[in-house]
Nucleic acid binder design. Structure first.
Lengths: 221, 221
DNA sequence: GTTCTTGTTGATCGTGTGATCAATAAGAAG
DNA sequence: CTTCTTATTGATCACACGATCAACAAGAAC
């Protein structure tokens, strides 16, 4: 029987090991933040010497930037995929807001916020942040432009409106990171705001009528 | 003449020295971020041994939290003061958005963003963040409620609307921290969004009429 | 001028970080 | 079985952090 304590990590293919390390780093980032991605931290989770992590990633800053891009890009693609299933831009935009505000991605929001700060001293990360923001903006802009095409929306500047929607969503989510109580009907208010901005009819972004999120279950650690 | 190199710092009143240290920490925070507030960093700026800073602030985390509160509270009071000069809630809200979006307080925005992340591991800071957010929300809520009173606004939930306005502003400012280009008419779009949310007439938040900044100058790095 | 309070120093400890590299051993190749 | 490639180790370096504290000295009090 294999002893519980493994003297030496099993020798693996570089590709395998690299994937292992990346996955460990990803988990650490989601659980404890990007700044918790350290050589020793990642190595410990994989069950390997810190030198090995350094061997695969000679530059920790680059590793952090890469993990950020991995996590965020996955989210973007996931949401973009959801959009394709819907028909009208109105439905798409409504679903977009609803999905991004449902509180199920607060861990990703935390990473966004941290990346904005870390980007001040990690240039590689800053570049990734800008790139991923552009990707997000492109997704939203596509929806807005489609809405203009069908006449559902009425705005003269789709790119800027897309940026603004993103900024609003990010801000509200970041706020929820610290203060998740106090605000009821987050979705409703945001929908009204976006309606005003894209020039859609009042209430058109809330298909199911007034949705009530109910009382907040306070489970504070 | 006194030599350029001072062997020993002049002995000062505890109140004086404390003020000096606080001011140095404040400057560091605004220039390099809250995480740059370290014993050695602050001591170097004051021209003093690191131990002295530790003497006045036995707990660095508490110092960081205090500096955050100082900086942010000053901004809140300043803006609140500006609001009092205006008559109608419509003017007040318009000025509020304009002031917060003029890009002259990006250093404070950076501190907000960093505090949201640092608050995960600095409980004292997290408490200060919540407190200062409440203070901001109170200021905005007062304006919204006044607008409801005069009939200029039409919304059923002033507290939530106030939170949302704050979240939007924070998000857009945080965005500007990394990507200050690409978006034209930030103020205009935000004004439209807020108009939709508070139920104000279109264009009522932009006293100078429709301001057009022209086509977007795409200068992508 | 002497005494005494206390603001101030500077060294030190323990911890955590990224980075580096000779030495090791696992496993494929012969 | 032997050889050889290379994945992996573990120790080590320099640095920065918060914290602690005996020792010093400036300046008020007497």
């Amino acid at each position: 029987m294999s002893s519980t304590i493994q003297k030496r990590a099993a020798r693996k293919t570089p590709a395998e090991r690299a994937a292992e390390i990346a996955e460990a780093a990803r988990e650490i980032a989601l659980e404890q933040g990007l700044s918790a991605i350290t050589l020793r931290n990642v190595a410990a989770r994989v069950g390997v010497a810190s030198g090995l992590v350094a061997h695969y990633h000679p530059n920790v800053e680059a590793l952090v930037a890469g993990i950020f891009a991995t996590i965020v890009a996955a989210e973007t693609e996931e949401v973009a995929g959801l959009l394709e299933r819907l028909q009208t831009p109105l439905e798409q935009l409504g679903m977009l807001l609803e999905t991004l505000m449902d509180g199920s991605r607060l861990d990703v929001t935390a990473i966004w916020v941290e990346a904005w700060t870390l980007g001040r001293r990690n240039e590689a990360l800053a570049a990734c942040v800008r790139e991923q923001m552009d990707a997000w903006q492109a997704v939203v802009q596509r929806v807005v432009e489609a809405g203009i095409g069908t006449g559902e929306f009425e705005t003269f500047d789709a790119p800027s409106v897309a940026w603004q929607i993103l900024g609003m969503v990010d801000g509200l989510n970041a706020q929820a990171l610290v203060r998740w109580d106090g605000v009821s009907d987050r979705g409703t208010h945001l929908a009204r705001a976006v309606e005003g901005m894209v020039g859609a009819a009042r209430g058109s972004l809330l298909p199911g009528g007034v949705q009530h999120t109910g009382p907040i279950s306070s489970s504070d650690p």
